[in-house]
Every structure is written in structure tokens, then in C-alpha cells.
Amino acid sequence: MADVTVIVPRRASERRLAIQELIPKLVLAPSFALILLFVYGFILFTIVLSFSGSKLLPDFSTWVGFGNYQRLFAHPNWITALKNLAIFASLYIVICSALGLGLAILLDQKIRGEGALRPIYLYPMALSFIVTGVAWKWFLDPGIGLEHVMHQWGWESFSFRWIKEGKYAIYTIVIAAVWQSSGFVMAMFLAGLRGVDNEVIKAAQIDGASTFTIYRRIIIPLMRPVFLSAFVVLAHLAIKSYDLVVAMTDGGPGTATWTPALFMQKFTFGRNEMGMGASSAIIMMIMIFSIIIPYLYSELRMGRRA
């Protein structure tokens, strides 16, 4: 009898435990299934597609092996797109990080009105890239924008027509993208700066270190994880850059500002080259994974160490 009274509550508690363990799994299951299908399933689908001879519609009856990839890397527009990506991504990441850090440090000086200043810098992030792109397209257009206004104000020799020149047009996209994102990077750095232990700084001040040295030797090295996060966010934005380019130049003048994402869209949907479009998407995915996976790996390793 004594045995029974002991066993029943144990069974109930076991059941409760089992349910407690099951509930999170049950709740997560639908979203897990959806992600499995719509993210990883379609990645797989795209990989398969990139080896098929699909033109207008997906076509799984003709197989071309690596033919699509060969044609891709022989295509001048893809080469242009890769070059543009290299220019755009490196400038975008470097300038955004530098500007973001600079702004964050300036805002960190406990100045009056910080609460009002911060949203002003952050606000561009609230706009979509399409809005940013159209606004900058008009602003940089020599016929209606900056150059036109300068001429009207009497500065007749002023000339800034990069957006109309194939060699320089990609740099105007960098300008617009930096304008859009540096406020966001600033917010990230600001959070990082605020997270630095005050005791360390005070100790350094007592030792007689100048503000510059404190930043250079102590604060910025301490913000390594923030730099890493900023890099990952900016890098994948750069690889995906599509809407900004479409709004500003749509790949022009000529084919001067094509980017990989633009290439993917135009080939898949405009040129009935779904196989090639898929292969370009896979190359972009490999680029993004090669940034994200080392990052996740280092994050996880650090998490384990902590």
C-alpha cells in the first residue's frame, strides 16, 4: 500500500515533466517545419534547378551539369557584377563602420540633446532602400539635383555627374547606401560603448591615459564582437543589394552598375534563363555562407567558453 502511494505522485510528476519537455517542441514544430520547407527546401530546389537546363519554367528533364556555372562565369555581366560587388562591399563596410564608430564616439561624450540627435542619425534606417534610392537618384541627377541647384545659385563650373558616368556610377550607390546604414551601425557601436565597464576606464584615467589612448587601446579593442556583428550585417546587405541599385540606376549607365542580385533577377525572370539565374543565386548563397558560418562558429565557441 505504501508503495502505491509513493508511485502515483511520481508518475504524475513524470508526466508533467514529459509534457513540460514536449510543449516547447510542439510550439516550435510548425515554424520549424515551415522554415525547413520554405528556406532549406527551396535552397535545395534552387541547387537542383542550377544544374538543370530550365529556361522559362523549371524543367527537370534536361540536365546540363555545371554548364550553367560555366556560362555564368563566362558572362561579361556576371564579371561586372562581381567587380561591382567587390567595390561596393568593401567601401560600404569600411565607410559605414568608420562613420558609425566616429558618430558613436562623438555621441558618447555625454552631450546635451543626445536623445534628439540619436534618432536623427538612425532615421534613414527606417526608410526602405527604394525610397533612399529614388531620393538619391534625383539628388545626384545633374539635370534636376545638386549640380542644377549649384548652377542656379551661380556656381556655373560646379560639376558632379558620377551617376551618369559608367566608371563612377557604382560609387554613387555606395554614397546612398552609406547614408542609409551608417546610423544603424552607429547605434550598434553606441550600445557597445555603453557596455564597456566604467571601472576599466576610470582605472586608465587614474593612470593618466589620454582620452584618445583610452579609446584606441581599451575601448575599441573591447568592442571586437560589435565590429564582427556590424561586419556580418553589412556584408550580407551588400551581397543582397538589389532594391537600391534598381531604384538608383537599374544597372545603368550601360551595364556599369550590375550587381549579383540584379543579375539573378534579370536572368531568371527577364531573360528566361532560370538555370543560370539559379546558379548565380547559389554563388551568392555560398558567398553569404562563407561569411555567416565562421561567424556563427566563433559565436558558438565563445558561448561555450563563457
Binding site: 545603368g252 550601360g254 551595364t255
Partner: peptide
């Protein structure tokens, strides 16, 4: 479409002086 756009690329590159 594929041929048409390939031709676009060359014509527009040339017209823009590349």
C-alpha cells in the same frame, strides 16, 4: 529574350562609350 538581352548589353555598353 535571352538573345535580345545579350544584344541589349553590347549595344548599350557601346552607346555609353565603354
Amino acid at each position: 529574350a535571352a538573345v535580345k538581352n545579350a544584344l541589349y548589353d553590347v549595344v548599350t555598353r557601346h552607346f555609353n562609350g565603354e
